[in-house]
Simulated assay, not measured.
Amino acid sequence: MDWSRSVYVAGFAGVAVGLGGALVYVKASACKAGPSVPEESNLIRLATAVDGLSRQLSNIQESLGSIEQALKERSAAARAEESEDSADGPHLSMPLSHSQRKGSEYSLASAMQSDAFDTAEEDHTISSDEEDPDSLESFLDRIDALHAKKDNMSVTQKEIFQLLTDRVENSPEDCHLLWRYARAHKTLSDLAKAAGDTEEQKRLIYAGVDLGKRALAVDDKRWQAHQWYAILVGLTSAFESTQAKIANGKIFKEHVDRAIELNSSDYSLYHLLAQWCYAVAGLTWIERNAAKMLYGEPPKSSYDEALSNFREAERLYTGKWKNNKLMIAKCFYGMSNYAETRQWLEEAKETPIVTEEDRTSQVEIEELLLKV
Rank of each mutant, 00 (worst) to 15 (best):
E261L: 06
S308I: 01
G234H: 03
S110V: 09
F332H: 15
R222E: 14
I60E: 13
I246A: 02
S268T: 10
D257C: 05
L92I: 08
L345E: 07
N248D: 15
T198H: 07
K245F: 00
L307S: 03
A49L: 01
A47Q: 12
F310M: 05
A217S: 08
N337A: 14
L368Q: 09
A329Q: 06
L64C: 01
D115F: 05
R342E: 15
F252K: 02
S171H: 12
E121M: 07
G18H: 04
S127T: 15
D85G: 14
V209E: 09
K371P: 01
I246V: 15
H91Q: 13
S308R: 11
D257Y: 06
E137H: 08
H271N: 12
E84S: 09
K221R: 15
D144R: 15
S66C: 05
A10N: 07
P172C: 04
P299N: 06
V155G: 01
F310E: 04
T360P: 00
Y338F: 15
L345R: 10
R359W: 03
R167T: 05
R74F: 08
L269D: 04
D166T: 11
S114G: 10
Q227F: 14
P38I: 06
A10R: 08
L96I: 02
L92N: 09
S302Q: 10
L316M: 13
V26K: 13
I286V: 11
V155M: 08
L232H: 11
E312Y: 01
D304F: 03
V37A: 14
G18M: 04
P90R: 12
F239I: 07
L235W: 06
K149C: 11
E122D: 14
T236H: 03
G103V: 09
N324L: 06
G11F: 02
A274T: 02
F239V: 08
E159V: 09
N152H: 12
W344P: 04
D2W: 06
Y25C: 08
T341F: 02
A192F: 01
V17R: 13
T360W: 01
R222F: 10
E340D: 14
L273H: 05
S301R: 00
F117D: 03
E81K: 14
D51P: 00
G103I: 08
S127R: 15
E137L: 03
P90S: 14
L211M: 11
K193I: 00
G14C: 00
S189K: 03
G282R: 02
S107E: 05
E314P: 00
D358T: 10
R288S: 08
L163P: 03
K292L: 03
G65D: 05
M327Q: 15
E350F: 02
A281W: 11
R180L: 15
A70N: 01
N42P: 00
S110C: 12
K102H: 11
T360R: 10
L136S: 12
R342T: 06
R214W: 03
S110G: 03
Q362N: 12
Q362V: 04
S93R: 09
K250L: 09
W285G: 01
A306W: 06
R288A: 05
Y270I: 07
L368D: 06
Y333G: 02
G296H: 07
K149E: 15
L136V: 11
A207Y: 04
T351E: 03
E356R: 11
A290H: 04
P172K: 05
D115C: 04
T48R: 14
Q157W: 11
K32L: 13
